[in-house]
Design a protein around this nucleic acid. Structure first.
Length: 418
RNA sequence: GUGGGUGUAGUCAAGUGGUUAAGACAACGGGUUGUGGCUCCGUCAUGCGUGGGUUCGAAUCCCAUCACCCACCCCA
């Protein structure tokens, strides 16, 4: 038990680490191109931040948070990124900087859920947020950034789906109309949908049960109930995306599960990685800051799951280049050569060359085999003979060609850099 | 929380009640003391997720338990 990591967590081993480095760099690069700066907030926050931000009726708050009491405070490991960022920009009055404020982050999040493919209890996400405007240009930029990032990695089978979930006013009107429509046939729906009827009837629209799908046909969609402002905004967003040549489909079934969202909702979805196909999800949250007691600050952003992204990359057969390996192994025979080898290794490393030495002190054959396994381009041999002659033997591993050069650092460096 | 699947070495596995638990890859050692990728030899589970039980005998049957995977719900 103690020898196994807790359920829903994963060790990131060296054989995977280079992939994470790669996507992290790619994401940071795209963000920089779009003018986003990184923000890092604490891994835990006051519980109340999430209760009021994410919403006290959501599954996340009701049953998925890691919460504990300490010194009469209730603290919670962040289950998502946006609330804390909103808290931070209010706290530090960043809204006084030139607007908009464009931020990105790369964080672990924690939710107590039953793990499955593409879902862990500690998971990792990228996110971006744009604050200080409710202009749909910001929404378009946020979507464009995600689109660029995903496409830039070579992913083909991901679809952008967008929707508008309106403002609190038009959403209420739609809910009422929806319940009105569904009520006559309520008994025929599946059990989950019966639950959804009260909690969130919108969810009934994308139930997977064929029976429900049939019953739901012709139901009033949110888009039919948007108020004039919301309707204009949604049209504005679509025209912006079109201008950016970003392909999208309107999916009225997209409903954000966090209470703070309004207006724009979008997801990047794939069906190549199992049931949890949303690799990126986001939207607008103009009332979040106020609902946590901060100043009014409109915002829009997304979260992008890194584990899911890596699953998609694998499903798409996209190979992530491994990081630069070892250039040279310095092999030695005997005690005096060992010390000479250690010193040479140190000097080569100081010259910024990736060098290894065999700490198992195997025989020469073993050291060559080790060099081979490491993928070293060169093996340098230092034995008693070389020390006496003031030379070293350098073998090019690919061609098996061997040269003997004077035991001088610059000669050696010149040879192994060839 | 509810379902389904799977647990034999670092990895992939054979084995379905009877003597010392195949095999492959990896790892490590070596093939007469200085050269890798090929080849050859050797080492590597008193142990079959864990605990009980049935039996003369259990990796194999029964019960319990744990872990992992997948799906529902929900979300990244």
């Amino acid at each position: 038990m103690l020898t196994i990591a807790p359920k829903g967590t994963k060790d990131m081993l060296p054989s995977e680490a280079y992939k994470w480095h790669f996507i992290e760099k790619a994401f940071a690069d795209v963000c920089q191109k779009y003018g986003f700066k990184e923000i890092r907030t604490p891994i835990f926050e006051h519980t109340e931040l999430f209760v009021r931000g994410v919403g006290d009726t959501t599954d996340i708050v009701q049953k998925e948070m890691y919460t504990w009491e300490q010194a009469k405070r209730s603290l919670t490991l962040r289950p998502e990124g946006t609330s804390a960022v909103v808290r931070a920009i209010g706290e530090h009055k960043i809204y006084a900087d030139p607007q908009p404020t464009k931020l990105y982050y790369n964080i672990p999040c924690f939710r107590y859920e039953k793990p499955q493919s593409g879902r862990l209890r500690q998971f990792h996400q990228f996110g971006v947020e744009v604050f200080g405007t409710n202009n749909m240009m910001a929404d378009a930029e946020v979507i464009a950034l995600a689109y660029d990032f995903i496409n830039g990695l070579g992913i083909k089978d991901v679809e952008l789906q967008i929707n508008s979930i309106g403002c609190p006013n038009c959403r209420e009107a739609h809910r009422a109309a929806l319940r009105e429509f569904l009520k006559p046939n309520l008994e025929e729906f599946c059990d989950t949908c019966k639950d959804r009827y009260d909690r969130n009837p919108l969810r009934m629209l994308d139930c997977k049960s064929p029976v429900c799908q049939e019953l739901v046909k012709g139901a009033p969609t949110m888009l039919d109930y948007l108020c004039d402002d919301c309707k204009t905004a949604f049209e504005d967003l679509k025209s912006n995306l079109t201008a950016l040549e970003i392909e999208f489909v309107v999916n009225p079934g997209i409903v954000r599960g966090l209470d703070y969202y309004n207006a724009t909702a979008f997801e990047f979805v794939t069906n190549s990685i199992g049931a949890q196909g949303t690799i990126c999800g986001g939207g607008r949250y103009d009332n979040l800051s106020e609902s946590i007691g901060g100043p009014p600050i409109p915002g829009v952003g997304f979260g992008l799951g890194k584990e899911r992204l890596l699953l998609v990359l694998e499903a798409n057969g996209i190979e992530i280049p491994n990081e630069e390996g070892i250039n040279t192994l310095v092999a030695f025979m005997g005690d005096k050569p060992k010390h000479a080898a250690l010193k040479l290794v140190k000097e080569l490393r100081a010259a910024n060359i990736n060098v290894e030495i065999d700490c198992l002190a195997r025989n020469l054959k073993g050291q060559f085999k080790y060099a081979d396994r490491l993928g070293a381009k060169n093996t340098i041999v230092i034995g008693e003979n070389e020390l006496e002659d003031g030379k070293v033997t350098i073998k090019k591993m690919e061609t098996s060609e061997q040269v003997i050069v004077d035991f001088k650092l610059e000669n050696i460096i010149e040879e192994i850099r060839k």
